[in-house]
Design a protein around this nucleic acid. Structure first.
Lengths: 333, 333
DNA sequence: GTGAAAGCGCTAACAG
DNA sequence: CTGTTAGCGCTTTCAC
């Protein structure tokens, strides 16, 4: 086993040159005679020298790292985004620091502080609790990309999906299929994407003259159990909606559970529409009609945004990238 | 917006003390008079000082970070492990650097080098291509936990699952149900977990006197398409196995696709057993019989192993943690 | 073409 | 109880 930490002065000594020369032989930022360069490289190979990124970071004031703060990796939608972010960043030589916030305000805040303390070069963040201004206050002038539907001043670059469009398509599709009494299972109140989706649902249903009873709107956590419980509440009464739009696919899975428990057939007794198009959606029986949320594109857009911000500095105006969503009609409607 | 980078000397100057005192007032590693401490803390608050972890890392020779190298985050099994690792590490104040290797030898190797250059305090790694010795050569004396079924000298702490046990239960269960002609869809040849699972399958089938034709064994990538293609090859001929064990659930999903395409009923025409118990398993129709692979426990065991190694140093003997697997009989058998 | 010296931000001897 | 000094490993002036 070779000595564990070979540092630049070890290489310099062994090659009979100064650390400066080793640095330049490796980086190519200054001319080094061919002969010296070869000798240095040889010693580097023999000693197994690998420069310390920590030391470089301190000196260069940049770490080649980007943090990605995500709400909840147990929803299959997010690993896809995370993978896309990771791969895009890795291609450009950046490492990703992934943090899971669970949407908790305290967790969001402490993670933000830790990220600043780690001198990351940029941050991609899907906020659930903190406001854009609070975030900016914590991270200073750090390159910041927010994944959010928030309207208005963000103090950050933005990546969003056009959820209203997909939801509108879904509602129209329900009407075309003859479902006129419709309900909605949304996420918790607040800054979650469920809020926008619910608003879009209401607007679309109203525009098309569909019936939406107040008690056909449910707010639950974005998970399978939430969907199941809301489903039970909505479907048990005789007075129930004939179609239900869910704020995401995971909730729809829970709704499938509820329908199964109650012996109800989908779509005969109740139609179901999801949101996200996670892989499971096409594995369910019946296959789930859903709105496709382009996870990989979202990740790629975030990477692109954060890298251009890192390159351009804080002066250039903030950008907004809006990605389309589209309805995928399948068997559950 | 406050000045972006407040450093310790700024605080010292504003509080009228030395940087040393600020450091100690914050860390508590040296007594500081109550009066001074209060003053320093006040200034820290006003200026919004947050110490640089990069600088601390260079000085202290430890980064409070652990790398987690995983094969493929698109298989839902891994996000669960990753989440467990992330949470366990976060609880102890460590940040996780997640890398996705896709099992590529070149990627594994460069990621390993980069990780060393980043001075992480430890590494949790599920190797697919590199051998334990090659890995140890690259990472030097770094605390290293390998997630692998590899038998023999590992030069690292190990976390493994007792796959043989679960597979044996599965095969016995198939026999009990009256399936005597059995096949297997495994992963690619090599260091993948599929190799051990196949060997266990063969051993168990042989011990119980079941029939396993050579062409009922398939090697495919660990994804849905792989399962589908293998399924088509196995199920099309009249001479087909009556039950198929899959090396993981994702492959089993592909097999479901194939059965569906061919108009075959599960379990009447062919029984299916998976491995992992990802959430989808219980959502399929019919619900998938599978061997539960304790993802969260694996993650927790890795965290525990790497942290104790970090605490104990390289001298203490390597440990092996073996986690049980158990069959979950459901509707697909 | 090469080297000496300074400094990134921090902490720990050492000294008082 | 507090401050001065050195140094973690690197890159970049500045000087020759």
């Amino acid at each position: 086993m070779p000595p564990d930490r070979v540092v630049i002065s070890d290489v310099a000594a062994a090659a009979g040159v100064s650390p400066t020369t080793v640095s330049h032989a490796l980086s190519g930022r200054r001319a080094v005679s061919e002969e010296t360069r070869r000798r240095v490289l040889k010693v580097v190979g023999e000693l197994g020298y690998r420069s310390s990124i920590i030391a470089q970071s301190l000196r260069n004031q940049q770490t080649n790292s980007v943090a990605f703060l995500v709400v909840d990796i147990s929803n299959p939608y997010y690993p896809t985004v995370a993978q896309s972010v990771h791969d895009g960043l890795a291609d450009e030589g950046y490492v990703s620091l992934i943090g899971i916030t669970y949407g908790e305000p305290a967790t969001e805040e402490t993670m933000l502080h830790n990220i600043v303390r780690r001198n990351v070069d940029g941050l991609i963040f899907q906020p659930m609790s903190l406001s854009p201004l609070e975030i900016r206050r914590i991270v200073g002038s750090l390159p910041l990309v927010l994944i959010t539907d928030h309207e208005g001043e963000l103090h950050a670059d933005q990546v969003q999906t056009n959820d209203a469009q997909g939801i509108a398509e879904a509602v129209r599709h329900l009407k075309d299929r003859g479902f006129t009494e419709v309900g909605f299972i949304g996420g918790p109140d607040g800054r979650s994407p469920g809020t926008v989706r619910l608003a879009s649902f209401r607007a679309a249903a109203h525009a098309l003259g569909l019936t939406v009873a107040d008690h056909w709107i449910e707010h639950v956590p974005f998970n399978r159990d939430g969907g199941r419980e809301a489903g039970l509440r909505l479907l048990k009464p005789a007075d129930r909606p004939r179609a239900i739009v869910c704020a995401n696919d995971v909730i729809a899975v829970g709704l499938f559970d509820a329908a199964h428990d109650l012996g109800l057939d989908i779509p005969r007794d109740v139609a179901v529409v999801g949101f996200d198009d996670i892989e499971v959606a096409s594995m369910l029986k019946p296959r789930l009609t859903t709105v496709r949320n382009p996870a990989r594109d979202v990740g790629a857009a975030c990477v692109e945004a954060v890298l251009s911000r890192i390159a351009s500095g804080p002066e250039t105006p903030y950008t907004v990238r809006s990605l389309p969503t589209v309805l995928l009609p399948r068997e559950s409607t």
